[in-house]
């Protein structure tokens, strides 16, 4: 027995339905198109106002690659003039010192991420519109978070270096504050997307705000929080490497010195070390994320 074909409506009945649907879709199309044109126009306008000149890419591109060629060519030792790989010992002459500084960088990122995420966790909950009724409270928390994430880390680091002196402490504080702002915002958006049924369930059972948050919100958002916290750790290792530029501890101090003093091979060696570290951390946090989320 064959399957009977689907019966189509007679055109007289189909036409009004199709045109009703079409009208709604066309209105939607117009909105999307208008939005796309606006985005493109703004991009062109920004490029024009900021005098971003794509032609420079062609003209000066060789300088950029020339720098890389230069930092990868040995400047001293018996093999001077050949590729750095010919003499790794000469290339990585400062390895013990650099590894120690890299260790500092990773630790700064770790402590800063931990502090920032803990703060962001609390402030993220307090600024979520679906679980905090008080508009003034949310408004206040949101402005604090904005301030924390809009002031660049390097600026915070500079201020703290002036206040507390050179060393890792200013770096940790700068990372913690920026992380607080960025994670607080992300966390609050995760909270705003949760399923509200458990919240109603707990509230209806007479739970306080804290009890509701602990048993209806946190279990839902914890995997997301953890995942973003690990991502932020990875981002912060990169960030911490730069903070040394202003004297806030870690590998950045040596990197900026090498760049300024034209120790070309050192720049290459330090970049390789930083890239390797970030790759390792990426792999490690990826593994950890799968373990943690798999168990949850």
């Amino acid at each position: 027995m064959a399957i009977a074909a689907l019966p189509l409506l007679p055109p007289a009945r189909l036409a009004p339905l199709a045109s009703g649907y079409g009208a709604v879709r066309r209105a939607e199309h117009r909105r999307v198109l208008a939005g796309a044109i606006l985005v493109l126009a703004l991009a062109l306008l920004s490029g024009w106002v900021a005098e971003v000149d794509p032609a420079l890419l062609w003209e000066r591109g060789s300088h950029f690659f020339g720098y890389f060629a230069r930092i990868l060519t040995l400047e001293a030792g018996p093999h001077a003039g050949s590729l750095v790989l010919r003499d790794p010992a000469e290339w990585f002459w400062g390895l013990p010192r650099w590894l120690a500084l890299l260790g500092d960088t990773v630790l700064m990122a770790y402590v800063g991420t931990l502090l920032g995420c803990l703060g962001g966790f609390a402030l993220g909950l307090l600024s979520a519109a679906n679980i905090v009724r008080s508009a003034p409270l949310r408004w206040g928390v949101k402005r604090v978070l904005e301030f924390c994430r809009t002031v660049p880390e390097v600026v915070f680091a500079l201020i703290f270096v002036i206040a507390f002196g050179l060393g890792p402490l200013p770096g940790v504080l700068a990372i913690a504050i920026h992380t607080l702002g960025a994670q607080g915002k992300l966390f609050s958006e995760i909270v705003e997307n949760i399923d509200m049924k458990p919240v109603e369930g707990a509230t209806a059972a007479g739970a306080s705000w804290a009890g509701m948050a602990r048993f209806a919100v946190v279990p839902q958002v914890l995997p997301g929080f953890l995942s973003y916290a690990l991502l932020r750790f990875e981002v912060n290792v990169r960030g911490a490497a730069v903070l040394g530029f202003v004297g806030a501890g870690g590998i950045g101090q040596d990197l900026v010195e090498a760049v300024r003093k034209f120790y070309y091979n050192d720049v290459a060696a330090l970049l390789v070390l930083i890239i390797l570290t970030v790759t390792l951390i990426d792999a490690g946090t990826g593994w950890l994320r799968r373990r943690l989320l798999g168990a949850a």
Binding site: P7, L8, L9
Partner: peptide, 10 residues
């Protein structure tokens, strides 16, 4: 295809 889908809905 739109006609098929609308007919099925109707």
């Amino acid at each position: 295809d739109k006609a098929i889908a609308l007919s099925a809905l109707e």
